[in-house]
């Protein structure tokens, strides 16, 4: 994208601005009636990074993002986006950010090109329609009315709309939901291209793989709290120096008993899988097989893997990310 250094508001002290966080959230709270959606969270997003809010549905990701976008007012806390107070002056932010909302169906009777041109007219500065079509690979569907698009195509159009104004900061809320694996990969490469061009991206997702592939840093959210924050590697190694031994759950085996096996730090059952986190894979597998043999059983689909974000999440919250 063709954005020069002088486009960042014409302010002096470019270096200072580059170091200043693009997003600063502190003590943010938001409730809807009796439901506390966001319960005092804080984090900062650096310029040029891809920052992920990871968590299950209802964790408070979307509420957080919509407050950052200036669409909702926080109940408490401070939110600064591009140095601007998002609660006080959302209008000043909107020109400079790109927004993709979770559910989208836009003007069903307009064509892809017409919707893009419509949104381009809302901004003082905008990218050419051809570039946008190419970026999300919708060139072939340019003249299709949006009601005839598939779910994934609609999602890509919605991402294109977030890029219309060549934004400094892009919010992508569950951008790959409903996409097939191929479309998902092509969107990931688009997001990586955005980072190369210096655009900051904040995305929410409940796909572990997406966060692992894309995000420089991740904040793990659940029930309105940020549980952990850091790079994917940091998060994994901070909790798990150990590996995970997993197999199909055997009802005869007691979880507590498994936790006492050699080397096992923690044992959990999730989705029909028993996972043993262990510092000594060999000892744990030996002990496990000895135990099952004594019972006349055989663990099926036994495997070993490195701990992932999924494990981090499981460990932090006690439940899986996808429910």
């Amino acid at each position: 994208m063709a954005r020069g250094a002088d486009c960042s508001g014409g302010r002096s002290g470019l270096n200072a601005e580059l170091q200043e966080p693009v997003i600063e959230v502190d003590g943010l709270r938001k409730r809807y009636g009796d439901v506390v959606a966001v319960d005092g969270i804080g984090f900062a997003v650096r310029r040029g990074e891809i920052f992920g809010l990871l968590g299950p549905n209802g964790a408070g990701k979307t509420t957080t993002v919509e407050i950052l976008e200036g669409l909702r007012k926080p109940d408490a806390g401070t939110v600064r986006v591009l140095g601007i107070d998002a609660a006080r002056a959302p209008e000043r932010i909107k020109e400079r950010i790109g927004v993709q909302l979770q559910t989208v169906s836009l003007y069903p009777f307009l064509t892809v090109t017409e919707v893009l041109d419509l949104f381009r007219s809302f901004y003082r500065h905008s990218m050419p329609t051809a570039w946008l079509l190419e970026a999300v690979e919708l060139g072939e569907r340019r003249d299709a009315q949006t009601r005839h698009l598939s779910g994934g195509q609609r999602q890509r159009l919605s991402v294109a709309l977030a890029l219309v104004n060549d934004p400094e900061l892009v919010f992508l809320d569950e951008p790959t939901t409903g996409m097939d694996p191929q479309a998902r990969r092509s969107l990931w490469s688009l997001v990586q291209r955005l980072r190369e061009q210096g655009t900051t991206v904040l995305l929410t997702t409940h796909y572990m793989e997406e966060a692992e592939q894309l995000c420089d840093r991740v904040a793990v959210m659940d029930h309105g709290h940020v549980l952990e924050l850091g790079t994917v590697d940091e998060l994994v190694s901070r909790r798990f120096r150990e590996r995970a031994v997993h197999f199909e759950t055997l009802p005869e085996l007691d979880l507590r008993e498994l936790g006492d096996l050699a080397g096992v730090k923690r044992a959990v059952v999730e989705d029909g899988q028993t996972v043993l986190y262990t510092a000594d894979v060999g000892a744990t597998i030996g002990a496990l097989l000895a135990r099952t043999e004594a019972l006349g059983l055989e663990p099926r689909n036994l495997g070993i893997r490195r701990a992932t974000l999924e494990d981090v999440f499981l460990d932090l919250t006690g439940h899986a990310l996808r429910e």
């Binding site: 976008e69 669409l71 020109e95 909302l101 836009l106 901004y123 003082r124 709309l161």
Partner: peptide, 13 residues
């Protein structure tokens, strides 16, 4: 309902 108004509200319009 289709969040078109919300989406428009996220632009400077």
């Amino acid at each position: 309902e289709k969040l078109i108004l919300k989406r428009l509200n996220a632009t400077p319009l």
